[in-house]
C-alpha cells in the first residue's frame, strides 16, 4: 500500500470511528463487570448488532456475523466479542478476489451505477490514479443522456491530463465505447475508462442498454469489459444490495467503488454485498479533489469502524 494512504482513509473515517468505537469500548467495559455474565454478553451482542445496523450492514449480514462469532464459543467479556466481530468482518471483506489481471490491451473498465452516486467524478479520479500508477488511460463519455454530463467529464479529463472520446448528446453509448477503444488502440493507450449514464436498476430497458455496451465492447477487444465497477454511494441503505445484485446480473459487475465516504455514512452495505455476492470493494472516494480516490484497504476500513484511537 502506498505510504500515507492508510492514514488518509483513517483520517476520513475517524470522525465516525471515535463515536462508534467509544460506544463499543463502553459496552465492553460494562460487560466485563456485569453481575450476570450471560446477560451481559447478550447485552453486548445486542449493542454490537446495533452498531452494525447503524452502519447499514443490514439485518442478514449482521446476523451472519453474529452467528459466526457465537459459533466460536462463549466469549470472555465484551472486548473479545468485539475482536471476533472485527475479524469476521475482515474475513468477509478480504475474501473476494482482487483485481482481475490485465490481459488484452486496451483494458476496458466500465463504471456503472444508479443516478447520483458519483460515476463521473470517480472516472476522473480513477484516470488520475491510474496515471500516477504508470498507466496510460483514456476516458470515454458514454453518458450521452444526462444534461451536461459530457462537459462535466471533459473538465475531469482535463484535470487528470488524459484524452476524452465523446459524441453528441443523445448518441448511442455503445457506439461511443467502440470508438473510444479504436482511439485507444490508435493512440497507444492501455486503459479505457467508460463513464456510463446513471440508471435505476429497476429499469429493464436501461439495464439492457448496459448489456449492449458490454457486447459491443467485447467485439472491439476480446474479453471486454475487463472490469465493471459499480459506483455505490456510502449513504445508501439496504437497497444497495438490490442494486448490486441487478447490476451484477446485467452488467457483470466485478467490484465496488464506495463513494462519498467522507461524510458520516459508513457504507456498511458494502460489507453486506461482499458477504452475499462476494464482490470486492476496489476503491473508496473520499472527496472532490483529483487525488481523493484510494484503493480500498479492508483492514483500515474495519479498524476505523471499530477502533477508538487511530
Amino acid at each position: 500500500m502506498p505510504l500515507g494512504l492508510r492514514d488518509r482513509l483513517g483520517a476520513v473515517l475517524r470522525r465516525t470511528a471515535a463515536r462508534l468505537g467509544g460506544r463499543l469500548e463502553q459496552i465492553a467495559g460494562a460487560a466485563g463487570h456485569g453481575a450476570d455474565a450471560s446477560e451481559a454478553a447478550r447485552e453486548t451482542a445486542d449493542a454490537i448488532e446495533e452498531v452494525l445496523l447503524e452502519a447499514d450492514v443490514g439485518v442478514a449480514a449482521s446476523e451472519r456475523i453474529m452467528a459466526a462469532v457465537r459459533h466460536a464459543g462463549a466469549p470472555r467479556g465484551g472486548l473479545q466479542l468485539r475482536t471476533r466481530v472485527q475479524r469476521e468482518m475482515l474475513e468477509i471483506l478480504s475474501s473476494p478476489p482482487s483485481a482481475p489481471p490485465a490481459a488484452a490491451a486496451p483494458r476496458v473498465v466500465l463504471v456503472v451505477g444508479v443516478n447520483g452516486t458519483g460515476k463521473t467524478t470517480t472516472v476522473g479520479k480513477l484516470a488520475s490514479l491510474l496515471r500516477r500508477e504508470g498507466c496510460r488511460p483514456l476516458i470515454c463519455a458514454a453518458d450521452t443522456f444526462r444534461a451536461a454530463a459530457i462537459d462535466q467529464l471533459a473538465v475531469w479529463a482535463d484535470r487528470a491530463g488524459v484524452d476524452l472520446v465523446k459524441a453528441r448528446p443523445g448518441a448511442d453509448p455503445a457506439a461511443v465505447v467502440f470508438d473510444a477503444v479504436e482511439a485507444a488502440r490508435a493512440r497507444g493507450r492501455d486503459v479505457v475508462l467508460v463513464d456510463t449514464a446513471g440508471r435505476l436498476h429497476t429499469r429493464a430497458d436501461l439495464m439492457a442498454e448496459l448489456e449492449k455496451i458490454g457486447r459491443v465492447a467485447s467485439r472491439a477487444v476480446p474479453g471486454a469489459p475487463h472490469e465493471v465497477l459499480l459506483a455505490l454511494d456510502a449513504t445508501v441503505g439496504q437497497n444497495g444490495l438490490t442494486q448490486a445484485r441487478q447490476f451484477f446480473d446485467h452488467a457483470g459487475v466485478t467490484g465496488i467503488v464506495l463513494t462519498k465516504i467522507d461524510g458520516t455514512a459508513k457504507g456498511g452495505i458494502a460489507v453486506a454485498i461482499a458477504c452475499e455476492l462476494g464482490l470486492p470493494i476496489r476503491y473508496v472516494g473520499i472527496g472532490e479533489a483529483l487525488d481523493d480516490l484510494l484503493p480500498f484497504a479492508a483492514e483500515a476500513y474495519v479498524d476505523a469502524l471499530f477502533t477508538k484511537a487511530w
Binding site: D56, T235, G237, T264
Partner: peptide, 10 residues
C-alpha cells in the same frame, strides 16, 4: 435520495 440508509437522519 429515497435509497439512503441509516445516515439519512443524521
Amino acid at each position: 435520495d429515497a435509497m439512503t440508509g441509516q445516515d439519512a437522519v443524521r
